[in-house]
């Protein structure tokens, strides 16, 4: 059994103090695995001059201090690390099972989606909850959680006119993606439910509950249970395990 990984990598300068690493391993999940493995190795090896890395789907943004390293040096170092990564370097991530309510008043786009997807609400919710989602990135806003693996049957368009305010902890879908809003914020994704807790708390360590490469399953609860869960500490509401 070989432990090495097959993928294509392209590194290019992105301004005077960052490099963009693009990975193509054939599909999004495989590319995401390589990005996460490379990201983990970069932080473990404490490469001189790197200030931060931003993984997202099939790319890794590597920011550095131009006073301490340079594009060509860093490119060589990243290539050297990429040559040595193997399947064991792919971070395991956490496995989450979380309750969510998909009833009114939390499912703001319930009626519109029933029409658009030609399905009744119960089957839409069942379909959504049957899938396991992969966290592909945490970003855009602090704690905004991008989820992949949305079932094809739930493909829908974004709103033509984004809402001025999407409530914090809303679960949303758009195109082939799902997402969780950390704060009240404007947004154009379709809102299908809500979590009974916040996914980003400045005083928590780390502040973002979910991290790239985690896996999430949703468990539908009724509004009475949801309201009770809202009052409870988060640790007692969610189930967490290390994967494999």
């Amino acid at each position: 059994m070989t432990l090495s990984l097959a993928f294509k990598m392209a590194i290019r300068p992105f301004g005077d103090s960052a490099l963009l690493v693009d990975i193509d391993a054939g599909n999004t999940d495989a590319s995401s695995d390589i990005v996460m493995a490379l990201n983990a190795q970069l932080s473990q090896q404490c490469i001189r001059g790197i200030t931060q890395t931003t993984p997202s789907y099939n790319s890794l943004l590597v920011s550095f201090e131009p006073e301490r390293t340079q594009h060509p040096v860093l490119q060589t170092e990243i290539h050297a690390i990429a040559d040595t990564i193997n399947v064991q370097d792919i971070p395991k991530g956490n496995q989450w099972s979380i309750p969510a309510c998909f009833d009114a008043p939390y499912a703001l786009d319930c009626a519109a989606l029933e029409t658009e997807l030609s399905q009744d609400w119960q089957s839409i919710v069942d379909c959504f909850c049957a899938a396991e989602y992969r966290v592909h990135a945490v970003g855009f806003l602090p704690g905004f959680t991008y989820l992949g693996n949305l079932p094809d049957a739930l493909y829908c368009n974004r709103l033509r006119d984004p809402r001025a305010t999407v409530p914090a902890s809303s679960i949303a879908i758009a195109g082939t993606q799902a997402g969780i809003y950390p704060f009240d914020s404007p947004g154009g994704w379709r809102i299908i439910g809500r979590l009974p807790f916040t996914v980003f708390q400045t005083q928590a360590d780390p502040p973002a509950l979910f991290q790239a490469n985690d896996r999430i399953r949703f468990e539908a609860v009724n509004p009475e249970v949801f309201e009770a869960l809202e009052q409870r500490p988060i640790a007692s509401v969610i189930k967490q395990a290390t994967r494999r």
Partner: peptide, 11 residues
């Protein structure tokens, strides 16, 4: 606060 963009926190 550089070093937290992987959580969506700008520097």
């Amino acid at each position: 606060r550089p070093g937290h963009t992987h959580m969506g926190v700008p520097s």
